[in-house]
Design a protein around this nucleic acid. Structure first.
Length: 179
DNA sequence: CCCTGATTCGC
DNA sequence: GCGAATCAGG
């Protein structure tokens, strides 16, 4: 992917808005967060100084000079973007649909009375924060700004946590039992 | 382990 | 110039 003027401009914009490198990489698409960081440095954009997330004071140490680089197999695609794939995350590009349609659900309601079922709290993650092992259960209205994802840990590459997994798949056995 | 940015250096 | 590999820190 080339660093076109547009992409560079978007990079500058998002970086100045305080988005993390990985978030920016996700929005640009086709680049890794390393690429973003590298570009930021090359552009002499102000780093993250000492604020917020990662100060990292001095970095005087230089690793080795010999051959620390394996080079055997390089170039990993980017990130496994299998499960949730809105294709673009384009905030600029409307894209009302995104592959899977999210309708405001009425699910995580623990009913009243609470019959032993506990609804876990969510980590309120944003789309860009999701990884292969975070629950991708959407919560809230996507049009609302409080929309987020569950984000709890999901077992071994499952798209959902144990709780939402059951809501999502509803095995027939359990259905019968429910009746 | 997840994430963050910073740096180096082969390409 | 680019960015993967690596480092360093939360």
């Amino acid at each position: 992917m080339n660093w076109t003027d547009e992409r560079v401009e978007k990079l500058k914009k998002l970086w100045s808005e305080g988005l993390s490198a990985s978030q920016i990489a996700a929005q640009l698409g086709g680049v890794s967060r390393n690429a973003v960081i590298g570009k930021v440095h090359r552009l002499n954009l102000p780093g993250r100084a000492k604020a917020g997330g990662t100060p990292s004071a001095a970095r005087p140490k230089r690793p080795a000079a010999a051959t620390p680089r394996p080079s055997a197999f390089q170039a990993r695609p980017v990130a496994a973007r299998a499960a949730v794939r809105p294709a673009d995350t384009g905030i600029a590009k409307e894209d009302a649909d995104a592959g899977f349609e999210i309708r405001s659900e009425q699910l995580p309601v623990p009913a009243n009375g609470n019959n032993g079922v506990v609804v876990p709290m969510s980590r309120r993650l944003e789309l860009t924060q999701l990884t292969e092992r975070t629950c991708k259960w959407p919560i809230g209205d996507p049009l609302n700004d409080d929309f987020h994802f569950c984000g709890n840990e999901s077992p071994d590459n499952s798209p959902y946590c144990t709780y939402h997994q059951r809501l999502a798949y509803q095995p027939s056995a359990e259905r019968r039992r429910m009746r």
